[in-house]
Design a protein around this nucleic acid. Structure first.
Lengths: 138, 138
DNA sequence: TCCTTTTGCATAGCGTGCTATATAAATAGA
DNA sequence: TCTATTTATATAGCACGCTATGCAAAAGGA
């Protein structure tokens, strides 16, 4: 059968495909949704802070934010405290998409684990966290 | 905390990063390794067969194979039975890389699950398979 | 103060994934 | 047989992940 690494890759693609299908009509791509969702908790973060929270490389985030700004989902303003840094703000358009997208993302997660018991789902999340931590350390 | 979908994505990236780090000196990218590993079991498959076995879209496979041919890892020959189809063969260069890469990939999987008991690892794989199947059905 | 290092972001270049579309060969149906 | 459909591959165009690099601002040290 397939290795854990193969399955991890396939599963992530299936999750992404499903999420993309759900938020497609909102004009949102998966990574864009993640950024919006993160900023729902706290607006005005810098790119650096988003990089730390979403655990992607700085260049990846810069490109994603550039696409989001192009699409009018966010705006960027040079920080008063540090003229290198840019604070990211969700636009009204971004906010209007976010709430619907958030519900649909929850639906995707619910669907994905719908054949698991609640104990299995908890175990599933715990095991993924454990594997992620282990891979980070090596 | 993070959702299952977020964790699935992060975990897959950590697996890929680790694999890439391991096979980098062999001039192999992760997807290229997957193709070689599949053909280790059976050489001369068509692109279509590889698409089914590795569960990626046809266009994705076509591009990956084009890069592998460019890098001299495989060669493609028009099938005798069907002049539309192209049979894929591993070159000597590809085969020489494969064996080492295979061991290193096993190492990555071993590292990733090194903080799990054997029961947990089995559970982990089973849960991923279950979630994948569920997502495929919806 | 001046110089070095660090930090925040942008850009270039690439691999891998996707959808949509094109093209040619094989197959099926009339 | 002749046409219509299906099948195998290729290509265009995009999102998103990465590494490597460059640049400007901030911070630190002499």
């Amino acid at each position: 059968m397939h290795s854990a690494g193969f399955l991890a890759n396939l599963m992530a693609r299936k999750f992404a495909a499903r999420l993309q299908h759900e938020v497609r009509d909102l004009g949102l791509a998966p990574a864009q949704f993640m950024v919006l969702a993160e900023m729902a908790e706290r607006d005005g973060l810098t790119q650096r802070q988003l990089v730390e929270r979403l655990e992607v490389e700085q260049a990846t985030m810069a490109n994603t934010l550039a696409r989001m700004e192009r699409d009018g989902l966010i705006r960027r303003a040079i920080s008063d405290a540090d003229r290198r840094a840019k604070c990211i703000f969700v636009t009204d358009k971004g906010r209007s998409r976010l709430e619907i997208a958030f519900q649909r993302a929850q639906k995707v997660n619910a669907i994905a684990t719908s054949d698991l018991t609640s104990q299995e789902t908890e175990m599933f999340v715990n095991l993924m966290n454990k594997v992620i931590e282990t891979l980070k350390r090596h």
